[in-house]
Design a protein around this nucleic acid. Structure first.
Lengths: 216, 216
DNA sequence: AAAAAAATCAAACGAACGTTTGATTGATTT
DNA sequence: AAATCAATCAAACGTTCGTTTGATTTTTTT
């Protein structure tokens, strides 16, 4: 374990990295500003100076995460591949995002289910801002399953599928005792996208056979 | 929103329910003991009296959650159904567990990715105690995919698939504007288990075709 | 070189934290 | 009825919390 951030750029970025790393392991609310400042090797007051408060750091982390996801969606949808290929590519890109910026993503995802009163409004705003491209992603899935009820099941399922590995990260290492190298993550992306595509196809067939059942 | 716990049993149970409900919405670390006490309508000191500290409540919640899951596994495996049916039934049971005891499950799951130093040992112990039946569950999947590397991908994926709806619960209501009644949850369980079964079958086929590719 | 702006610091702020104390009440046992 | 035990309480414990202050240093601009 490192006790300080190694020769890293500007203080503002050091604070962000240190905080993200602490938030990722202990959760936002369990981390104190002094702990962040020590790891980032800055004075405590610098946190309010640069981020106007501890909450500002979390907001910045979440904004950056959503921006990365937005770019992935935009970049991939612009290619206008067939839906299956698009979905596969999005999964690949999301996995490599998680691999390269694990702690940022983990913070954004683990803090998502919570509803701190001071934070609810900001989160709702972020969701609102990004709802457009989320729905673009949904249209993709609705090419398979054109019922909003199914989208509301499959979309969160897709998100949590892709991120499951990183959520349970430390536990996985402990239980299976495997090495998490580049090969592993390639297999991971491939397996998850297959799981998802074949799964959705299965759901689609299930719906079809149900409809036929009703008609008889 | 209720400001107190309605005429409920023993004080100890009131504390547990109140705490779980607060932990579920704000996260363990963001909730204070006084807030819990107020909601449970007990004196603050009763928390240490019954649970020997705030952490004791969280431990109790997590223990109860794991016990419920253990019972589901045991009960279902005892039936000795074919693997597909077993998997399907486990998913159904897990969904209905989440439906009936949402806040307890949500707390257990959302706090799982974090590693508070005072809490790491307990969590490792719980995992160790339950590793046996988790591996029993794994054997199920290894009937489809007999490579531990794939299990390490598919098992967390399965868990997060089943729980995705409850993790993103409030967000789902907001985005899709749908009613979450019994019918919805029946569809939910059915869809998730299809997604999972067909997905795993797809992964299995992918592996098979890869192996054939190597042999040529 | 002087002036202005930005960055950093130690120190202190009041508030909230989880826990403990010691007295008091209510119920149970002798 | 007396003694014992469990349950509850208000109050205070010492810490830690996030933030702010006002002085000081460093950098940039004039």
């Amino acid at each position: 374990m490192q006790t300080s951030v190694s020769e890293e750029k500007e203080p503002k970025e050091r604070i962000l990295t240190a905080a993200a790393s602490l938030f990722a392991t202990k959760g936002y609310a369990a981390v104190g500003v002094r702990e962040i400042a020590e790891l980032a090797q800055v004075n405590v007051s610098m946190i309010s100076y640069y981020f106007s408060g501890k909450m500002g750091i979390l907001k910045e982390i979440i904004l950056r995460y959503f921006e990365e996801v937005r770019q992935i969606y935009e970049k991939t949808l612009a290619k206008e591949l067939p839906p299956e290929e698009t979905l596969k590519e999005i999964v690949y890109e999301l996995v490599s995002l998680m691999k390269n910026k694990t702690i940022f993503c983990k913070v954004a995802i683990t803090e998502m289910p919570f509803n701190l009163p001071e934070f609810a409004e900001f989160k709702a705003e972020v969701i609102r801002l990004h709802i457009d491209y989320i729905k673009q992603g949904l249209k993709l899935i609705e090419l398979f399953v054109d019922d909003p009820k199914f989208s509301s099941i499959i979309t969160p399922a897709m998100v949590s599928l892709v991120f499951s590995h990183f959520l349970f990260g430390p536990l996985i290492k402990k239980v299976w005792e495997i090495e998490l190298d580049d090969n592993y993550y390639e297999l991971y992306a491939k397996t998850i996208s297959t799981l998802l595509l074949e799964g959705i196809t299965g759901v689609k067939n299930q719906i079809k056979s149900n409809k036929q059942g009703e008609q008889i």
